Every structure is written in C-alpha cells, then in structure tokens.
Amino acid sequence: MFYLHGPPLNQNSAAQKAILQNVPKPSKWNGESDYMRFDEWILGLIQWMNIADQCGPPTRFSQTRSAHILTSVDLIRTNTLGSYLEGNALRWFRDEVQKVPDGFSTSRNPDPLSYRWTFMQVVNGLYQRFIHEASISQVADKFNEVIYNRKDGAKVMFSELKRWAVCMPIPPDLYTFKRRILLLVPPAMCRDMTRIEKVSAERSSINQIMQAAISCERGDCTGSIMQMRVL
C-alpha cells in the first residue's frame, strides 16, 4: 500500500494505456481460504494499480465539510478491486461494500461519501471474512521448513526465509531470524562463520551474517583456517 498512497505520476494517458495493454491483468479471487493465494492476488492487484497510476492518499480534508473524505482515486481502487472478485468474495463485496446503509434514503442530507469503504477497509474485510487461522499457521510452517542446500546456497535460503517471514501475521524478531540462519547452515560452516568471521546472532546484523555465509561458501573461511594452522 506504500506505493499506492504516494503521489500519482500523472503520466500521459495514451502512453499509460499502451503500457497497460502489455501488462497481464490481475487474476480474480473467489474467496478461498488459502492465505498465500490471497497474498499473491492482492500483491498482483496492487502492482497493476500502481502501473495504472491509481495512486494517491485514501482521504483528503474538505474545508467545506470540515472533515476528511474519501478521494476519488481511492473510490476507483475499491471499484477496481471489486471487478477482480468472483464467487463468494464477489457476493460479500456486493452485500457488504456496495449495499446502501439503512436510513440513507430517508436522510434529509445524505452524504454518499460518509458510508463508503476505503480500499484498505475492503482488503481487511476480505481478509477477516475468508482467511482462516489454519491457513495462516501454514505460513509459519513454511518458514520452519526452509532448509539449506549447497547447490542453491545461502542466498536462496535467505530469500525463502525472508519470503515466509514477511507473510507471517507476526513476523519473527531479528534475533530469531538471525539464529535461524545460523542453525540452518551446516555445522562446520557455522563454526567457521563464528570463529573466523566473528559473527553471532546477538552482535551481528543480518547482512553481516549473510556476508559471512557467502564468504565461507566461496572457501574464504577455509583459506583463513589453513593460514592460521601454518602460523
């Protein structure tokens, strides 16, 4: 959402349409309870909105009303999201987001913006309605199932750890993440990292630990050990 809430690029409309024609449209989401499927769908939708320049703050302050009101671009984002829903998710959107509130038609001065959902409220509403706790716990399992193998190396292991950690509702703290890296690398490699490269989960940054791991993979640590033995 950081990229959507930034200022719009105000690109040339013709050029923008040409770009969008070459960008695959987001897939539709039907309300399945798989957290990873939901995460992939919403990230793809946000990326497409960013390319379509549907950017800008969700609300603005109205001097005439002395209140914050929804911006037109946020209304567009909500309508765009609705067009990429189907099945149970689309039914929920129509029942909850698009419904006219009770008493609105009888109000003397109805304000159409006063009952509108923001884009983020819709996203949170979909999450609360369809994503089950069991699906969320699978993300933590994925984080704990990451392994190190020599073929892919420490960089791939780190990317996998980071991918699942970011998806977790409560990501692991930095110490846990760093400790996980040191536990996953082979014991001999971990010893070299701590003895030769002088890294630890308590004192070193993630970048320092990763640089030490990469250095040991290249054989730099082995060379240092041989040098120490000669001395």
Rank of each mutant, 00 (worst) to 15 (best):
A14C: 04
I196R: 03
D102Q: 13
K178P: 05
S135P: 01
V100Y: 01
A14L: 13
P24K: 02
N50H: 08
A165P: 02
L81T: 06
Q208G: 10
Q211A: 07
W29F: 04
L70K: 02
D192W: 02
I214T: 05
I42C: 03
L90P: 00
S27A: 11
N10Y: 10
N88E: 15
Q227H: 13
Y148I: 03
T71P: 04
V23Y: 05
D192R: 11
Y3R: 11
A201K: 09
I209D: 00
R116N: 10
S114L: 03
Y127D: 11
F61T: 09
D34N: 15
V230T: 10
N124D: 11
L75C: 13
W164Q: 02
Q208K: 14
T222R: 13
M189T: 13
G219F: 08
R150P: 07
V185H: 05
G125E: 03
E202R: 14
G223E: 10
Q211V: 03
K17T: 12
S27M: 10
R116W: 00
D74M: 06
P7L: 08
R203T: 11
R195Q: 12
A18H: 09
F61K: 02
Q11K: 14
Q47C: 11
T59E: 10
V185R: 01
E40K: 11
A213E: 04
I181K: 03
Q63C: 09
E217D: 05
S72V: 10
E86V: 08
S72I: 05
N124Y: 07
Y148L: 02
N144F: 10
R116L: 09
A18D: 09
L75E: 12
Y35S: 12
M157R: 01
V123T: 03
M1T: 10
I136F: 01
L182E: 08
V139P: 02
G219A: 07
E202I: 13
A134M: 12
K99R: 15
I69T: 12
G6A: 14
M228A: 14
R129T: 13
A201R: 07
G125A: 06
E96L: 03
I51C: 11
M210K: 05
P169N: 04
H68C: 06
R229L: 15
A15N: 13
S204F: 05
W164S: 12
C167Y: 09
A201V: 02
H5Y: 11
P58S: 14
E86M: 10
G103L: 00
E217C: 01
P57D: 05
W41E: 00
M228C: 09
H5G: 06
R163A: 11
N50M: 07
I206S: 13
W92S: 00
V100N: 00
P110W: 00
K142Q: 14
N79P: 02
K155Q: 13
R65Q: 07
Y84W: 07
R116C: 12
I51W: 07
S205D: 01
H5L: 05
Q54N: 07
F61M: 03
G82K: 09
A165V: 06
I42W: 03
A52W: 08
V23T: 12
G44N: 00
R203S: 10
F93E: 01
G87F: 09
C190Y: 06
W92T: 01
R180S: 08
V230I: 11
L182N: 09
G6Y: 10
C55E: 06
